[in-house]
Every structure is written in C-alpha cells, then in structure tokens.
Computed example of a mutant assay.
Amino acid sequence: MEFLDNITTNWIIIFILTGFIAGYIDSIAGGGGMIQVPVLLYSGIPPVFVLAANKSAGMFGALMATIKYAASKKVNWKVVSIAIIPCLLASYLGSSLVMYLPQELIHWAILLSIAIAMISLFKKSKTIKEENIKLTKKSIILSTAPIGFYDGILGPGTGTYLTISMKKFLNLDFLVSTASTKPLNFATNFGSVVAFFFAGKILWLVAIPMGIANICGSYVGSHYAIKGGEAFIKKVLITVLVAMLFANIYKMIFQ
C-alpha cells in the first residue's frame, strides 16, 4: 500500500484533531463522519479504507457517548434492545453492498435523505411524556433499521437521522432520542467494522489515534448535550443538516 508512505506524523495529528471534533458533534447530533471522511480522503487514503477508518473511529466515540448517556439515565433501553440487532444486521448488509453502487446514485440518495430529515425537523410534532409513550416492536424497527442500512452504505449523518426518526415516529424528546441513538450507532458501526475487518480494509495506524480522539470529543459533547437539553440539541441538528446539504451539493457540482 504505497499511500501509507504519505501518512506522516503531521497527518496523524490532523486525524487526532479531526477525531475530537467529529466525536463532539456526533455525540450531540450525529454527522461526525461528515467531518472525518473529507479529511481522510484529502490525505490520499483510498475511499474504501476511508470508510473503514471512519467506522472504526466512530465506533469508539459511540461507545463513550453510550456510557455517558446511560450514566445520566437518558437512554430508552426498550427502544435500544428491540432495534439493536436489526440495525447491526442492516449495517453489515449495507457495508457488504457499498462497493457495487454507482457513485452518482449515492450522491442523489444522500441529498434526498437530507431533505427528508430537514422537513421532518422543521415540521412540528408532539412530545409525549415517556411513561405515556406506546412503543411497538414494529414501529421501533421500521424507524431505525433502514437507517442502519444507510449507515453501512454511507455513514455520514446516521446519528442525525436516527435522532430525528425517533423524535418523529416514536415521539421521544430530543435528548432521549439522541441518547438512545448512541448504542444503536455503536452497533451499526460495529457491524460495518466487522465487514471491513474481514475484508482487510482497516488501517489501524489511522483508526486507533482517531478513535481515541473520538472518545475524548464524545465525552465532552455528550456532557454539553445533557446540560443544554432539547434546545441545544436541535440547534446542533439544524447546523449539521445544513452543513451536510451544502457539502454534498458542492461535491456534486465540482467533483
């Protein structure tokens, strides 16, 4: 792998800084991959290895966020226990198929998913007290597993989409939605990492330092999400979606 010669100490430092910022954003609203993937690509690492490194680092960050939110008792474990296996399997399937999809189709699919997420976010929906929410197995799986599949294929914005989906279709508030997303995000990342591991696509030289930085950023971000509550999380969600929209439009026009 000749491209490994270009991974200098300076690049490792950049990966660490990028991982911290991505972990911070991802722990609040998702979208950490949107930060990590462009930097990894710019370093000259091939796309498949980039996806593998992004998933590996994101897995560590999602684990830290899960621990932090669980300690604050913000995770809805009923949702997690029902959705985690379907999300993991869907993610594994997505990662197994990603190399066979046309690039142009992927770009349009991303734009469509962002548009749907923004419409859902700005459309008012009732927040019901947790004790009054009636969650069915079917509703939980339908609102999470398709996003797990998306995570396996692409990844950026998965946490954002899961949070909005839980808010919209399961009537959880933003803080509980965000918290419950993290163990699912860990599962989808884990499913992808397994697929990439057996394919020999994980660059541990990149994934480990970026993953440690992800853990640190995730710890700080989840702290501020718990402290700031729903209003803070919604602002970050909107920022992430707008950034994703412009980033993907730019990519389609100029690349």
Rank of each mutant, 00 (worst) to 15 (best):
V240I: 12
N6F: 12
I133W: 05
S120Q: 14
Y69K: 02
L184T: 01
W11I: 12
K251T: 12
A187S: 13
E131D: 14
L241Y: 03
F246L: 14
I82G: 03
I226C: 06
G159I: 08
A83V: 07
P38H: 09
F196G: 00
Y219S: 07
I249L: 15
V194Y: 08
I140P: 05
S27C: 10
I238P: 01
L4S: 10
P209K: 04
K234P: 01
D151G: 06
N76G: 07
P102K: 12
I119M: 11
G191K: 00
P46T: 11
I7G: 07
M1F: 09
Y92I: 08
F60G: 00
A53L: 08
N54S: 15
Q103I: 13
A70M: 09
L162P: 04
P86V: 06
I208N: 05
I147N: 05
M64F: 08
Q103T: 13
G58W: 00
A62H: 01
F246E: 04
I233C: 06
L245V: 05
Y224I: 13
F232D: 04
L97Y: 10
W77V: 07
L97W: 12
L40D: 03
G221L: 07
I202K: 06
D26A: 11
D5T: 14
D173A: 05
K235C: 07
F190H: 00
V236K: 00
G221M: 07
G217H: 02
Y161C: 02
S222Q: 07
K129W: 05
F122Q: 06
V75A: 02
A243H: 03
T188D: 03
G211D: 08
F20A: 12
A117T: 14
V37H: 04
I14Q: 06
K168D: 11
M34F: 14
L170W: 08
F3N: 10
S139R: 11
F122D: 04
Y24F: 15
